[in-house]
Design a protein around this nucleic acid. Sequence first.
RNA 1: GCGGGCAUGGUGGAAUGGCAGACACGUUGGUCUUAGGAACCAAUGCUUACAGCGUGCAAGUUCGAGUCUUGUUGCCCGCACCA
Length: 802
Amino acid sequence: MNQYDFQTIEKKWQKIWDDRKTFHAEIDYSKPKFYPLVEFPYPSGQGLHVGHPRPYTAMDIIARKRRLEGYNVLFPMGWDAFGLPTENFAIKNHIHPAEVTRKNVAHFKEQLKSLGLSFDWDREVNTTDPDYYKWTQWIFLQMFKAGLAYKSEMNVNWCTGCKCVLANEEVVNGVCERCGAPVIHKEKSQWMLKITAYAQRLLDDLKDVNYLDRIKSAQANWIGRSTGAEVDFSTTAGDTLTVYTTRPDTLFGATYMVISPEHPMIEKWSSIIQNMDEVKVYQAEAAKKSDFERTEINKEKTGVCLQGVKGINPVNNEEIPIYISDYVLTSYGTGAIMAVPAHDTRDWEFAKKFGIPMVEVVKGGDIEKEAFTDCATGVMVNSGFMTGMTVDEAKEAIKDWLEKTGKGRRKVNFKLRDWVFARQRYWGEPIPIVKCPKCGYVAIPESELPLRLPEVDSYTPTEDGESPLSKIDSFVNTTCPKCGGPAKRETDTMPQWAGSSWYFLRYTDPHNDKELASKEALDYWLPVDWYNGGMEHTTLHLLYSRFWHKFLYDQGVVPCKEPYLKRTSHGMVLGENGEKMSKSRGNVTNPDDIVRDYGADTLRLYEMFMGDFQSAAPWSMNSVRGCKRFLDRIWRLQSCVIDGDSYRPELEISFNKTIRKVSEDVETLKFNTAIAAMMSLLNEIEATGSINKKEYRDLLILLNPFAPHITEELFEEMGFGSPITSQSWVTYDPAKCVDATVEIAVQISGKVRARIQVPADIEAADAIALAKQDPKIAAAIEGKTIVKELYVKGKLVNIVAK
RNA sequence: GCGGGCAUGGUGGAAUGGCAGACACGUUGGUCUUAGGAACCAAUGCUUACAGCGUGCAAGUUCGAGUCUUGUUGCCCGCACCA
């Protein structure tokens, strides 16, 4: 017997798979298709992290199992390569971002290949490749033509030191991460995508997909549908202030109004607001804070009462003060609220601080102590025609009244906001739009796609906050596609999310230069059958790509409404100390070291065995060694192989049970228990002192998806025939998964008092009778009244005695 | 703050409402060995051990709760320009 020389074996099989294109997929109508997908990585300069192989190995196991089950499997990989870190690295080291990307991709690819993942590398895509982003731009143009892309004034983070727009991540505690200068909010005209037009469908169609419940609820909450009403308040200034509320029933309790510090009405009223100086100071303060800071409930409420203008409550014509406060956001609802301190927690705190009166309109709580927000039990009081109604009745009554009187209307609102689709950065897809002084924003002709990123000398954002592209005259100056007159190109680029919103479509036909993918390929491969990715992508990437997909469905480009049939999530891999792995904490493990010292099969096995796939788990070198030990034992089995073409009787049930367990557990992502079952089986095999050929062969196939290299090598070594990749998955006989006798527990009133052996198919009455014969049980129930007797098949007998 | 989640031995974790701790790691003792970060064998939740106690804490439902319900504490993740 040779040594288990994993380095040689792994290189050998990886070369065989490459040379033979073992995992290359083509359309084949004779087989059922299966399209598993993992999130393609951002090729960072740090290289692969031990967190990457966890989801990749998991889906690889499923892909390999599906192939053995006779499916035509498309398991692709690519690179989500536009982004900030590459650009920042390029700026710092004066290397072109494309060059940085090329190096990082090469490194990542080499690392991924060393793990024996069964990707179809012929279908590799890269979002920064002009042949790819041509179609990203094409999709944007279709959205523009459909009216879903528009320009709007948006707040951006503005570094007062670098004089440039910052990503949220670059803002640390209100100052610029790089230069430490204060960061303020600044209005900027930005390209937006109208994802809100799809809000209802994105919500409704969740019922048609098989996502984990927590993913569905996270998306539903992010979309944040609420039903309520818009109410028009007139003001002493003559203008109307429209508010959105989910509690129109409390309208009689509205004792003041609050508008966001950025509300446009403030500018309009600047001549009549007597304390404009105070207002301006407050606006400047608010501009420094993020939405997150502003809506924090624990913080002290702040605000300024507008002097010189009042709102008028439409139900009772009472004049009420108008405040500006940063807890009201421009981005939600109408940017103005009616405040009902008696029945809203934030309003209550604000009113307490500013000494604003409260009016109780729903009875049931103690509004002196806290706001009473319960809708289910309260009864309306002090509310004119609604007095005496339940909250639900009042909601309907007031909405009818608002619509009848024209003072308001029913309104569905979403928390979901439109997608800011422009970055003032270099390393992204150029937005294919021209601004013509005569024609406005004009799409460039599709024949001019891809609109390539021009070469620039500096990737640093410009002093005026525009993209570096704005400095390239040859790029900027062009002619209007419509009128032929002089015009200027859009110089902003798309956010990284653009390329990742449709990459799974390109995998189906990655080299097509006529369409983003052929109809035949899309019809055959879509939808993605199973998409696994991180929980952190639930509300952005996952929602964005569903939105793009639905748009493309409406355009007749893709054949199905939803891109992903099933979505699951993996947990993070933490450092050995249980903290998030990071360079600064010094707890990073490099997968290359593990592959070199223990082998890819051990790494794969450990990543799957380390804990529940869906939860975070800390790294453990000791446990890695444990997995290596298991593979060593599998290797050594070849020294005790005996003849035999069926399972030996003493192992027959164990084999059948293990095959069933592994087959089922892989489907539910319970890789850790699947591996545990194989370890148990190995323990039993070793106890017999030998293994026969049938048993070894089946064990190797069972383990193959987890540890593909060692199992292929042993399969070949043992002369079991062609590679495992062309074998069939092992099957089990349900009838042979049952033991003849089982040990059951006997409980007295729920406490275990004895254990007895019974035939597996024993009847309840017989089991109970047998239990009572046990000396301990007989003694325990003597002289007591038996209240109840239960038998749980194959598990226990419970005798309730008094 | 809002949203999602988690809490079980020395460690990672198992457990369709039915015998808590599978499977590993670690530790201890032993065998073999010139040697051991090798292999093999045995033990290993805790305690005042013929028994009792144990799944963050407090209640509840049930014949029976790690699992369901309510409350509570602590921790993790996301929050829209990181990917």
